[in-house]
Structure formats: structure tokens, C-alpha cells
């Protein structure tokens, strides 16, 4: 709302990543618009997680520029980076909850770091976030090791949402979940996106998730991105994309 609606939340220009001499990304350009859910798909090991890590500043791309909220994250002072970090939340593939802390304490870590809330308000906020992501309240006292994979992901999402970010990154949020939990997670993301006006950058393999949530899809093949709506990409003539959307799973999920 602050920016004009044309200005993208994430802007990648000519991003190249090489790890150990092997090229992962070859001049990638991407714009993620405010308020949309963009899904990144691609084969295992195609470099989806690496792309996500380059955007959130965990990895420095070999070449190219990465802008988030109109600011260059690659050339930033620590203070500027902290200001940007407050405005995004990241859900890692396995949840990445701090194992020595309870779920409630995990959710409160960013609150403690960035706000002056009283402990009782932080407890209330933790409980509210847990109910927002659909976890029962007794989860608050549990340690991450006592949770199932799906619960860990929800708890990770609750932590990512603690500071009311405008932008969330989700790395394979539904992988390893049963279909019912996965559906609920899709609804959750869609619902949160609507009510909080989130911009969502999501890595996923899951065609159902794609269909249920994504506004646009970016396919990572041959180290490049192809971006479009599902309908547009289905007509693409790249063999991998064809197979992805028109294989048995693709047809099942997308109802072709």
C-alpha cells in the first residue's frame, strides 16, 4: 500500500548462482507483485531453495541484483538489513524451530528482539498465532521434538508471522504432510494472504497447492525461470514443464 502498486516487492535482475563451479542459476529475472502468491516449482535439486536463500540474504548470488521492498539486499548495512528482516518472515523446509525452546518461546523470539511487549501480551500473541495457524493451545508448552512434521511447519509459520510481516517465504510448506493437512495448509495460506494482505513467495512441488493457492507460477528449468499463470504454462513446449503439468499427477490435480 505504501508503494505504488506497480513497484514489485521482490525484484531479481540477472541473478547468477554458481556453487562449487557448477552453475545453478543463469541470469534469472523475477518480479513478485504486492499481495500475490507466487509459487516456484522445479525438479529436486533444481535450485529452488538456493534461490530463496539468495533473496533472504543467507547466500550472496555470484552475480546480479536482488531487491526486496525496493532496497538492494546485497549492499546493505546491518541496520538496514534488520529493518527489512522485520518485514519478512521465513518458513524453512523443516520448520527450523529452536529445539531448546518451547513453541510459545519460539514464536516470542522475534517479538522479544524487536518489540517492548510485556510478557503477558507476548503470551496472548503466541496463543493467537497458534490458533491462527490451526494448532491446539497445548502446543504452546511443547518442545519441537514433541511435534509431528506438519505441526512443526505450522508452528514455524506462526513464528514467521509473529512480527506481522508483509512478505513471507515458504519452502515446501506442504511436503511431507498428509493430503488433509496439506489442504488445510493451503486454505490457511490463502486465508492469511487475504486477511493480512500478505505477499507470499512459496517453493512447492505440490500440484494441488499450486492450483489451490498460486496466483502465478515460476518454473525453474535449465537454470532459468519461466513465469506465468498455470493456464499459460500448460501450453509451454519445454519437455519438463509439459511433463509436470500433463503427467498423470498434473492432470489429476489440474483436472485436464
Amino acid at each position: 500500500m505504501g508503494e505504488t502498486s506497480e513497484e514489485p516487492v521482490i525484484r531479481l535482475r540477472g541473478v547468477v548462482n554458481r556453487i562449487g563451479g557448477r552453475s545453478i542459476h543463469d541470469h534469472i529475472d523475477l518480479d513478485v507483485r504486492r499481495g500475490e502468491i507466487l509459487a516456484i516449482v522445479g525438479g529436486s535439486g533444481a535450485g529452488k531453495s538456493v534461490l530463496l536463500r539468495s533473496i533472504v540474504g543467507l547466500m550472496r548470488p555470484t552475480e546480479g541484483s536482488v531487491e526486496v521492498f525496493g532496497r538492494d539486499v546485497m549492499h546493505m548495512s546491518d541496520a538496514e538489513l534488520r529493518a527489512v528482516q522485520m518485514r519478512w518472515g521465513v518458513l524453512f523446509q523443516e520448520g527450523a524451530l529452536f529445539s531448546s525452546q518451547t513453541v510459545a518461546e519460539n514464536i516470542q523470539v522475534p517479538l522479544r528482539e524487536y518489540t517492548t511487549m510485556s510478557q503477558s501480551l507476548m503470551n496472548e500473541v503466541a496463543a493467537m498465532k497458534l490458533s491462527m495457524v490451526g494448532l491446539p493451545e497445548d502446543t504452546a508448552q511443547k518442545r519441537p521434538s514433541e511435534l509431528s512434521g506438519g505441526m512443526r511447519k505450522r508452528a514455524g509459520l506462526a513464528r514467521a508471522l509473529a512480527l506481522e510481516p508483509e512478505l513471507v517465504f515458504l519452502d515446501e510448506p506442504t511436503a511431507g504432510l498428509d493430503p488433509i493437512s496439506a489442504n488445510l495448509f493451503d486454505e490457511l495460506v490463502r486465508g492469511l494472504q487475504k486477511s493480512l494482505n500478505l505477499t507470499v513467495f512459496m517453493v512447492t512441488h505440490d500440484l494441488d497447492t499450486l492450483k489451490a493457492t498460486a496466483d502465478r507460477v515460476a518454473v525453474l528449468v535449465n537454470q532459468r525461470l519461466k513465469v506465468g499463470t498455470i493456464e499459460r504454462l500448460r501450453d509451454d513446449d519445454d519437455p519438463w514443464i509439459k511433463e509436470y503439468f500433463s503427467g498423470p499427477r498434473g492432470r489429476g490435480a489440474l483436472g485436464a
Binding site: T102, A104, Q119, N123, E124, A126, A127, M128, S131, M132, G134, E137, D138, A140, Q141
Partner: peptide, 9 residues
């Protein structure tokens, strides 16, 4: 969603 009062830690 928030039917129960918040948990006490």
C-alpha cells in the same frame, strides 16, 4: 479461531 482464553506460560 480464538475460542479459548490464552494459555498461561
Amino acid at each position: 479461531e480464538h475460542v479459548t482464553p490464552p494459555v498461561k506460560i
